[in-house]
Design a protein around this nucleic acid. Structure first.
Lengths: 241, 241
DNA sequence: GCAAGCCGGATTTTCGAAAATCTTTGAATT
DNA sequence: AATTCAAAGATTTTCGAAAATCCGGCTTGC
């Protein structure tokens, strides 16, 4: 039996698939998730789907009302800003701890994941697979930065907030005309450099800036009406504050 | 239909019951959770139990391995210290925000919940019901302190970490001889006073101290061998009962 | 005309059994 | 004696149908 081949239950597959489709926006925020529909879409019975939905509910990706079923958790500007602020709080602490405690392996992880990220970035995001690879490497890089913090709780919160932010970023990955091209990768490089130089203050400032800018960018995209399938739930008309 | 009487599915009942039994230590850390056993204990089929377990897994109260089922999440000193530190980070921020933004209602909530907490404290924890009431009011007080922070994410993390800490505190509520009596309620009063005086620095310092002391107290209890059913590990021991 | 109450279909939730997988036992082999 | 293998038993996981509940439209009574 091949090395990493762990068994995978249907419930886990359902969890992965649902998570991906929610984060990518394929399932629109606010949309109700009907069991029959999901059963069709993913080719499985109710039981594994319900288990997945319950897990996702605990992660705030779906909501549920007692006997009315599940929905994709809605998105809102307020929530995005909240997530951004909390992210800065959590990751600043984790980054400082990592800078204090990180060893050679940690540094190697940062350098390596940054390199992989840049490679994929120049390759572009023509295909869907490329886009997914970029996202994965982006996550890996940010994870690597914090990975030496030694706190399971901080890493857990980091993961949660990362997913949340992904929901806002992903639907508008396509570059928009008239939008000043932002050199995200330069920010990543500067962040890595400050981190490896063990300059905690600078690194945290860069990190905070990085997220602030991303948030502002997302807000610009989302509040510009039309021209982009708005990722903020249509079912609930005026939920956009 | 009475006002607060929402419908409650079996899955929700299962979630509450399991959560309570895990936090209270009735289900021992590390103990495997067999479906048949749970089905007996809580008088319901597998489906609602599995849903509850999946939610609890996302909240780190239970763990699961692919085809081998669920277990109560283990406890460890390292995890406790980690939770304590993360708690201080999260709650300090939330407390500062609340102090900045809180209005009359927020203040009233603090005063009220502190009063209720003190009442129950002097009443003691003779009965099991009293102990539960004390725990509920303790939680309500800490919640009230932070409730004006305006951040859903901070409150969510607060809840998670509160539950975690409850797992460590609860098993050793019974006062121990030879242990210097600690006036926890005095700490609560000082904390409320500083908060209401809008002295953020002092309030945060008191909060951090409060948690540091609790952590030290728990560590003393848990590392003192014998004399207390140790809540750490012991895979199953008497799963018979 | 309008609120209240009640059917019928749609949907969620739960159960009980079947399918799939793991674990243990014990015999056969080296 | 130690190892391997297979069958039996135990346990988890999944399905399909039954039970419970919700939603929309309709009637009924005022």
């Amino acid at each position: 039996m091949p090395f990493g081949a762990e068994p995978m239950t249907l419930a886990e597959k359902a969890y992965d698939a649902l998570r991906r489709d929610i984060v990518s926006g394929a399932l629109k925020p606010g949309a109700p998730l009907r069991m029959a529909q999901l059963s069709d879409r993913y080719g499985m019975g109710f039981s594994p789907l319900r288990e997945a939905l319950n897990r996702l509910q605990a992660e705030r990706l779906v909501t549920s009302v007692a006997l009315k079923g599940f929905s994709v958790a809605p998105l809102s500007m307020a929530e995005m800003w909240d997530a951004k602020n909390t992210r800065i709080l959590i990751e600043s602490r984790a980054l400082r701890l990592s800078i204090e405690q990180g060893g050679d392996e940690w540094e190697a992880g940062i350098v390596g994941s940054l390199h992989a990220l840049l490679l994929q970035a120049v390759r572009g995001t023509a295909s869907e697979a490329d886009a997914r690879a970029l996202e994965a490497r982006h996550h890996a890089f940010h994870h690597a930065l914090l990975s030496a913090c030694g706190s399971g709780w901080l890493m857990d919160f980091f993961q949660r907030l990362y997913v949340e932010s992904e929901r806002y970023r992903h639907p508008m990955l396509a570059p928009r005309p008239g939008e000043p091209a932002r050199d995200v990768q330069a920010e990543h490089e500067a962040l890595a450099k400050a981190t490896l130089a063990r300059d905690a203050d600078l690194a945290c400032a860069l990190l905070a800036d990085h997220y602030r800018r991303t948030a502002q960018w997302v807000e610009r995209m989302m509040t510009r009406p039309g021209q982009q399938a708005d990722p903020v739930g249509e079912p609930i008309a005026g939920s956009v504050d």
